[in-house]
Design a protein around this nucleic acid. Structure first.
Lengths: 121, 121
DNA sequence: CTAAATGCAAACTATTTGCAACGAT
DNA sequence: ATCGTTGCAAATAGTTTGCATTTAG
């Protein structure tokens, strides 16, 4: 792991934020002002391919990055805010239903977050 | 519904293919050679906002469009191929665990498809 | 006649790549 | 000395927008 790789990894795992590359870049620039966006992209991809971070794609949003420890996501359909949630593990049940092995699953729950619900009133 | 909107809707719902905008565009051009890509984007977005089609985002792939009838997806981690699968409905269980209402959920199962498994041998 | 839909080109966002310079073994 | 990493700029992919023109009600 290189210096930037480590820094970026820490930024992602220290934050509860599900950061975009842009946000990681801005955060990293505080410590390393000369870093460029492409370096962040390169390192997040490297970390992702190595399975050290998780990538979260949601319709109409830039990709976000997260810890790998297993958990699900609650996503606000209005503002895109993403919250972690730990739901019952489905692995065994899914394996049974599918009838064969799989790598992993991804469960996203879409809702309207409290803030957006307020705004709608 | 305009002519193109209808055509695009039919292309999406008639296909089992989970088409990208590019594929929809190529398909539509067979019937309407003068249509441009932006029109496909505009109409797909319109249909999606109206809730008439479903958008599927997967890490590192262009968005794909699908019927709205509820079903889950099996996705090949290698080639991105997407297959429909009907799994047990989780709505009640999730509502119980979350403790509040949500809009819908999205469940994706990642695996290596038979074709890619063969290639790896 | 009016409002919405289309074609077209340009803009934009997110991301990747090529390459020269740099840094750490 | 070598090889991977970085900075930088340019390229690419996917998507959206502005505007003049066409189409449909």
């Amino acid at each position: 792991m290189t210096k930037y790789e480590k820094e970026i990894y820490n930024i992602i795992t220290d934050s509860t934020g599900h950061l975009t590359v842009e946000q990681i870049y801005l955060e990293l620039k505080k410590k390393c002002p000369k870093v460029v966006l492409a370096t962040v992209y390169n390192n997040v991809n490297k970390l992702w391919k190595a399975g050290r971070i998780r990538k979260i794609s949601v319709e109409n949003m830039p990709d976000r990055y997260d810890r790998v420890i297993k958990h699900d996501h609650l996503i606000c359909q209005k503002c895109g805010r993403l919250a972690d949630i730990s739901l019952e593990d489905l692995t065994a049940s899914l394996r049974g239903q599918i009838g064969e092995e799989f790598l992993f699953y991804d469960l996203k729950i879409f809702y309207i977050c409290p803030d957006c619900r307020k705004k709608d009133l």
